[in-house]
Design a protein around this nucleic acid. Structure first.
Length: 460
RNA sequence: GUGGCUGUAGCUCAGUUGGUUAGAGCAUCAGAUUGUGGUUCUGAGGGUCGAGGGUUCGAGCCCCUUUAGCCACCCCA
């Protein structure tokens, strides 16, 4: 049979994985620095846990798992009739009762609801795991991809929101990736709906204005007309969308625009508090067009866009005042962000931001020049390993061309050569493979040379 | 779910208006050469042209179906 991957999934080769680990480690270290604790949840959740949490579109994209044992004779009859309901678009627990995780937030909410009384509150957790969506793959979109989430449960404090904004800033600063971290507040969007066609039109109006950067102001206005907004309303929306200036100026203009809306002013005060805490930084921006799709956001919303590259958002998140209500625990607010490391990887690859040494693993390769020679090499290699220097000895005594090529493929920076001549002289030869430069030293001086010239540290 | 583009050697790709035995570079393997050393030279293996059907004397090339990948829409990380 042909070896083949399911659509939208990927194998990660060593050099790719090293780069992914570099991104993940950067994020994880900062999560820890900010006081978040690790959590993992199962790949599988019960279907009911996930359904209805992501809107109608989201429900369609959840991978559902067929129950086992449907072929059992005693079940065949009911399975057949229940399957009719599946065809009709319903989800039936006798056919499917488990599904693959769609994001990390709902499983987190489920976890908090289940463990509320044992957890330190507020609970700050981070989670780095794959999620699955039955979307059609395209650029920057996979059916299996990783999310790195940091969420805070159990506080209304805007300090948490400010921390998350700073976390975004720090991660992308550390990755050397130019981005814009955009913030907005759902309350402002709610006020906008209230001041035009009423609160119930919140969703259609926000989805339309969210498209502004994609389709332009004229098409947005057309769609708003179709949605039933009057000329007066549209004038107001246009004013809102075209507010210019730095963050402070934008907030002031918006305060003026929403002076009659308590909700709007509240959202603006929240944003002001967050920006004051987070401090001035050109990465931050107040983006009035930012809406975000997920239904549960109620306050701050975030989105991260990579600069100078054509790619959807590489991070997003927001505040949700009722995180666990759906699971029966009331009054637990949450706020959180997510990093899409697959897209971050793609962007960094496109911008050539990975440094060469990321893919280095083994630092020293000992060439195998024969039975007796390799015995000397083996014992010196073990000394290297004891000193914490990652090293290996080529297993077979094959021609050097092969051993060089092996070293090249594994991106090993240095080769150690111990041939018969070196043995009889009590010497060791070390060669920097990139430059071809080589140096022969007494075996006793080997480690001091490594330390001095090649900057190897003794980690033992 | 809807639409567009693409599938030729392990990889990147040529392949003329349909015409004999489908090519190149890289990679792989073998040999020669090198002061035991990434070079160079010589040679070899490797293909159901994504799959199935059709048109034709004849299809890698034209038509239909199907599948996979990419891209766009929807939505999103």
């Amino acid at each position: 049979m042909k070896p083949i991957l399911p659509q939208g999934t990927r194998d990660f080769k060593p050099e790719v994985l090293r780069r992914r680990h570099f991104i993940i480690n950067t994020i994880r270290n900062l999560f820890e620095l900010y006081g978040f604790e690790p959590l993992e949840t199962p790949a599988l959740e019960n279907v009911e846990t996930l359904l209805g949490k992501y809107g109608d579109e989201g429900d369609k994209l959840i991978f559902k798992i067929l129950n086992n044992g449907l072929d059992h004779p005693s079940k065949q009859e009911s399975a057949r009739s229940e399957f009719e309901k599946v065809i009709a678009g319903k989800t039936v627990s006798t056919i499917t009762e488990r599904a693959l995780r769609y994001d990390l937030t709902i499983p987190f909410a489920r976890f908090v609801a289940m463990n509320y009384h044992e957890l330190p509150m507020p609970f700050k957790r981070y989670q780095i795991q794959p999620v699955w969506r039955a979307d059609r793959p395209q650029k920057g979109r996979y059916r299996e991809f990783y999310q790195c989430d940091a969420d805070v449960a159990g506080t209304y404090s805007l300090q948490a929101d400010a921390e998350l904004a700073l976390l975004y800033r720090d991660v992308f600063r550390k990755l050397n990736l130019p981005v814009s971290v955009k913030l907005n507040n759902r309350k402002i969007l709610m006020a906008l709906a209230e001041l035009t066609t009423g609160a119930e039109s919140f969703r259609p109006v926000t989805t339309i204005i969210d498209k502004l950067d994609k389709i332009g102001i004229e098409k947005v206005k057309n769609e708003l007309i179709n949605a039933g907004l009057t000329d007066e309303h549209i004038q107001f929306v246009e004013k809102y969308l075209t507010i210019q200036g730095n963050i402070r100026e934008k907030i002031n203009s918006l305060k003026d625009l929403f002076k009659n809306s308590e909700t709007g002013l509240q959202g603006l005060n929240e944003l002001e508090t967050i920006f004051n805490l987070a401090g001035d930084d050109p990465v931050f921006d107040l983006d009035t067009t930012l809406a975000r799709g997920l239904d549960y956001y109620t306050g701050t919303i975030y989105e991260v866009k990579a600069l100078n590259v054509k790619m959807g958002s590489i991070g997003g998140g927001g505040r949700y005042d009722d995180l666990t209500g759906l699971f029966g625990v009331k009054g637990v607010p949450g706020t959180g962000i997510s990093f899409g490391i697959d897209r971050i990887y793609d962007v960094m690859e496109e911008l050539n931001l990975f440094t060469e040494n990321i893919s280095e693993s083994t630092q020293l390769i000992f060439f195998n020049l024969g039975k007796e020679e390799s015995q000397h090499a083996f014992s010196l290699m073990q000394e290297c390993r004891e000193k914490g220097i990652s090293s290996e000895l080529y297993y077979d005594s094959v021609k050097l061309e092969k051993q060089f090529k092996f070293a090249d493929k594994k991106k090993i920076p240095y080769a150690v050569i111990i041939g018969s001549r070196e043995i009889s002289d009590g010497m060791v030869k070390i060669k920097e493979l990139k430059s071809g430069e080589e140096q022969t030293v007494k075996r006793n001086d080997f480690f001091s040379l490594l330390e001095k010239k090649y900057n190897f540290k003794d980690h033992s």
